[in-house]
Amino acid sequence: MKQWKPAASALLAFSLLLAGCSSEQDAVSKPPATQNKQEKPSQPANAAAGSETSKEIPDAVKKPLKIAAIVQLSIGTFSSQYAQGLKEQVNEFGGDVQIYNADNDLSKMASYVENAVSQKVDGILLDHGRADALAPSVKKAVEAGIPVVAFDSDLNIPGVTVIDQDDYSLAWNSLRTLAQDLNGKGEIVYVWVGGFTPMERRNVIYEAFKKRYPNIKEVARFGNASQNTALDTQSQMEALLQKYPNKGDIDAVFAPWDEFAKGAARAIKQAGRDEIKVYGIDLSDEDLQLIQEKNSPWTATAATDPADVAKLQVRFLYQKVAGEETPQIYSVQPHLVQKSALPEQKVSMNDIGKYVEGWGKSDAAISAWMETLSKEQKK
């Protein structure tokens, strides 16, 4: 995987697609020039992450680290696989991680950050969250000397590394496939909810997509985030199918979250509306099972490996604790997974690399001493 190049190519494509869209992407995807002199696009991923060549374990990470992982909302198998990735990587390094779920309450999330600072943890991991709610608490952590690495957040605080899935590319890969399959014309449903940084970014591309393909019309939009998002989406999609009962009323559904895609796909399949196809974002083992079901409407999804993203986030944190330089932002390269590319036999996330070119474990944020540290824990 090459840092920056996927995001850069996506930005170029989007700038040609819509100038206004391009400017917003640049604002989010490019670090301030005054803060990131060490982050050169031409550098390999490990160099940009400040990797050291010595295999000697830095003193700062020899002790078991106490880490607080604070998530905005934990729903579905994507979240569970992300959490599992965090635990596996921290355990491999001999540390301890406590995961705190804010249940979509940003004030509670900020409170968890404050508590972590008070407890003098060795590091803080953030999953989602918004800068307007978290910035004051995160700044306290930085001032206290506690390293912070965030995932899918709009934080822009010097010293805080923010990683993302390149949400612009995720949305464009899925929407472009939808447009090609419809031959640029059709009626679609958009399942979306605001209030989450990655969803807001994906919506930027959706709005550009509508201008790029004016003959693809949005006939309905709905969506909400809850502890039963997939089930709620299924119920809402069932009602929508009754409102649009005829073939040709709806050609496709764009669901930029796998919980939305699961609910929509189940409703469509149960209604026998096999002419309607679902295009999503995100992927998990549960999603793969649904995609591979006979007559499943879920046709394609753009995704990264949630467990791999979590492990990358942990490695950046350990590099920070060790005193190594890390980038302020880092985008993980997403991939398009199409039902047509998968075999008839059931596959898991561990198998995707056999069928999707480029899918695999990230080699970023790996320092030579990490192998030694892992071996020490196995003794």
Rank of each mutant, 00 (worst) to 15 (best):
G129V: 04
P327T: 12
S367L: 03
S80I: 04
Q242D: 15
I281N: 05
E218K: 13
K247E: 08
P343D: 15
D258E: 15
H335L: 11
P31C: 12
L182E: 06
G186K: 05
I329D: 01
G195Y: 04
L155Q: 07
Q289M: 13
P245F: 11
D258N: 09
T299Y: 03
Q289L: 14
S15Y: 10
K5L: 15
N91V: 01
V160M: 11
S137W: 02
P334D: 02
D305K: 01
A307H: 05
L170A: 00
L12K: 14
Q180I: 08
I75C: 04
I352G: 13
A307T: 04
V138Q: 11
D103K: 04
I67K: 06
Q25F: 09
V337N: 04
A102D: 06
P198V: 02
G323A: 14
S9D: 12
Q234I: 00
A303H: 00
G194Q: 15
K87G: 02
L283V: 15
Q81W: 00
Q38H: 14
A83D: 03
A102V: 01
P44N: 15
K243W: 09
W359H: 05
P256F: 10
G184H: 05
K269E: 10
A141V: 11
F196Q: 01
R266E: 12
Q313M: 04
E56Q: 13
S54I: 05
K354Y: 10
N183F: 14
Q165W: 03
A225E: 12
F260K: 08
M349R: 12
Q35E: 12
P306E: 00
V253G: 00
V219D: 08
V142S: 15
L182A: 04
D154T: 06
N156W: 10
